[in-house]
Design a protein around this nucleic acid. Structure first.
Lengths: 218, 218
DNA sequence: CGGATCCTTGATCCCTCTCAAACTTAGTGG
DNA sequence: CCACTAAGTTTGAGAGGGATCAAGGATCCG
């Protein structure tokens, strides 16, 4: 749980202080919202188990998936700028999150330099990740997008100590398509083609990467 | 210059402290880089005059414009996560920037709560802006993308006290296309069509919005 | 176990890309 | 200061990647 909630760069002593902040955990059932766009921003979260997606809505009602959060990843930073959440966070499966009250975290960041550093990095990482996703959406073909997505999930799994070759993606084809700026049919066709080419092995939401290098070269 | 560099929420006294940080300004000529992807991250910047674009590169060499920064806007936050810049920042015209050393800024943020708040908001705003741009790239048609872009620039001009109806966009059609995930030809055609429909009036880089509501309804 | 959701695959269409060429603007050097 | 040249823009014609519409099949969860 320590390594999940806020890894890296903190001494044990400092981690203890952080843990006093984490008032509680919360469980969110599949399909339920942890928070919704427009909700007041009070906490940031760390996914403890399960996975979540973030969704942003255009004024005309169109929605797009803007992020995927696996266990160990941070959630809720979209609320900082306006004191209200700009996205909604929905559970892709029954999940639990750690709750970190933002006001208390800010205080702690003023006391402890390494804590401040960690929060800045967290914010900076999301900025870079989103910029990279802008590249995916703006410059890559459908095949390239799907490949990039699979490689991204694979790498994030590896970082968290899970298998990089095999995982369960709880997103639907529609979620993936929304995240990648394409239709669910094109996602499905692309995965089928990857399978025929021997790059992956899929059975519904279970995905196994067979030829990592091949996928990188798509 | 006060209102440009770091507006909002700071007392005069605190602003003075910030100004002691801003060691210097720097001028960047049209086409030159303020920093490049991979450069060590030492400073964040505020555009004082002119305008800049940020560009990110895929490993295969493809580049995409990931951001536009007008006078008064912040720049360089892409370096926080890795201590190296993830993007390059290039001047769209001869420009000047204020230099804010990051290490010193961090110290100041630990001393002064409102300064910490301001930096967090700055980071949070970029997160939300990029998420919104992901929506533009993933969900909107070419017409909608161009309209959304023009409205965004218009609004940012208004916020900075300039005309929301008329402005000089120093980006080329190619830059716009790259930022919006389309080709320069499609950008050009779309602008021509908008002009024929009486929504805007363009002469090269000079753009006047004729029918704001019409543009919103595209 | 049964209904609803999700996935796959096919056929067709259209929006945007690509390639091409002429025109305009802006920056440079004589 | 003007002419020259390179860069940027506009517009057209044709092609293609991905969207849309449709239907059958699989899977999941209550």
């Amino acid at each position: 749980m320590r390594q999940l909630c806020m890894p890296q760069g903190l001494s044990n002593d400092e981690l203890s202080k952080l843990e006093t902040l984490i008032c509680s955990a919360r469980s969110v059932h599949r399909g339920e919202a942890l928070y919704r766009s427009g909700d007041r921003f009070d906490n940031i979260y760390a996914v403890r188990s399960g996975s979540m997606k973030t969704v942003m809505a255009h004024r005309d009602g169109r929605e797009q998936v803007t992020g995927l959060r696996l266990a160990g990843e941070a959630l809720g930073l979209d609320g900082i700028s306006e004191d209200r959440h700009a996205c909604s966070a929905l559970a892709l499966e029954d999940s639990t999150v750690c709750i970190v009250p933002y006001t208390a975290l800010k205080s702690l960041c003023r006391e402890i330099g390494s804590m401040q550093e960690r929060l800045h990095k967290l914010l900076g990482e999301q900025i870079v990740r989103e910029a990279a996703q802008m590249m995916v959406l703006g410059s890559l073909s459908a095949d390239e997008r799907v490949a990039a997505f699979l490689l991204d999930v694979s790498e994030r799994n590896a970082q968290r100590g899970y298998s990089s070759a095999e995982f369960n993606l709880r997103m639907t084809r529609e979620d993936m398509g929304s995240y990648l700026g394409m239709t669910l049919e094109t996602v499905s066709r692309t995965l089928s083609r990857f399978q025929k080419r021997g790059l992956i092995d899929t059975q519904g939401k279970h995905i196994r990467i067979v030829d990592l290098d091949g996928l990188r070269q798509v």
